[in-house]
Amino acid sequence: MRKRSIKNTRVNMEVQRELSNIIRGGIKDPRVAPWTSVVAAEVAPDLKTCKVYISVLGDEHAQSETVKGLKSAEGYIRRELAHNLNMRNTPELTFVLDQSIEYGVQMSKKIEEVTGNDSE
């Protein structure tokens, strides 16, 4: 399966949807912040590994604790993913903190500052 194939794109979407449902409703770890969202999931073409990009609303401490909590619950998440999705292989999950939303907000503020200074 190629990396940009339609099948791989559909698998990525399904894995992302199921992971967000599992994280939202199934994890009882207090380290995982309640405002954790799955931004993207990239499943390798051989379906063995998956990079899960997550976004956490909160400070850096909450973000690092959420990543630690998700890594410790990886076995449970994989088991639930295998139960909900009918795949030959359940991919190993790697959680990556996605800072793109924060970066976009910071850039928007900087653009507003610059345009505000120009209008004055």
Results as ranks from 00 to 15, higher is better:
I22F: 01
E42Q: 14
D59H: 11
V15L: 03
V67F: 05
V67A: 10
R24I: 12
T49L: 10
G25E: 07
I22C: 05
R31Q: 06
T49S: 12
I23A: 02
P45E: 15
D59N: 15
V52R: 00
T66W: 04
K28P: 03
R24D: 12
P30E: 10
N8E: 15
T9E: 08
T66G: 05
V11Y: 00
P30W: 11
I27T: 03
K68R: 11
V43F: 04
M13W: 03
M13Q: 13
A40Q: 08
N12W: 05
M13N: 11
R31W: 04
L70R: 01
V15M: 00
G25W: 04
I54P: 02
V56W: 02
A41G: 05
I54V: 14
N12P: 09
K68P: 01
V67R: 09
I22W: 02
A40L: 06
K48F: 07
V15P: 00
K68V: 07
A62V: 02
L70A: 06
L70K: 03
R24Y: 07
V32C: 09
C50T: 02
V39L: 05
A44L: 13
N21W: 02
S20K: 04
E14P: 03
V38W: 01
K71V: 09
L70T: 08
G58Q: 15
E14V: 09
K48N: 13
M13D: 12
V11M: 08
R24F: 12
P34F: 08
T66L: 04
S37A: 12
D46E: 11
K28Q: 11
V67S: 07
N12S: 14
I54Y: 01
I6R: 15
A33L: 07
K7S: 13
T66R: 04
K71L: 06
G25C: 01
G26N: 09
L47G: 12
A44Y: 00
P45G: 14
A33T: 14
N21I: 06
Y53F: 14
H61G: 05
P34I: 10
V43K: 01
Q63V: 07
K7R: 15
P30S: 09
I6C: 08
C50F: 01
A33E: 09
I27M: 05
G58V: 14
V39H: 07
R31K: 12
P45A: 14
R31P: 04
T66V: 14
M13T: 15
R31T: 08
G58P: 06
R10A: 10
G25Y: 10
E42V: 14
L70V: 13
P30H: 14
K7T: 15
A62N: 09
R17L: 13
T36V: 10
V43D: 03
A33Q: 07
Q16T: 11
L19W: 01
W35P: 00
P30Q: 14
R10W: 06
E18G: 05
L47W: 02
S55P: 06
E65M: 13
R10P: 03
V52A: 04
P45S: 13
G58A: 14
N8M: 14
S55C: 13
T9K: 15
V43C: 12
I27F: 07
P30T: 15
K7I: 12
K7P: 07
V67K: 13
D59M: 07
S37M: 09
S55Q: 09
S55V: 02
I22P: 01
E14L: 11
A41T: 07
V39D: 07
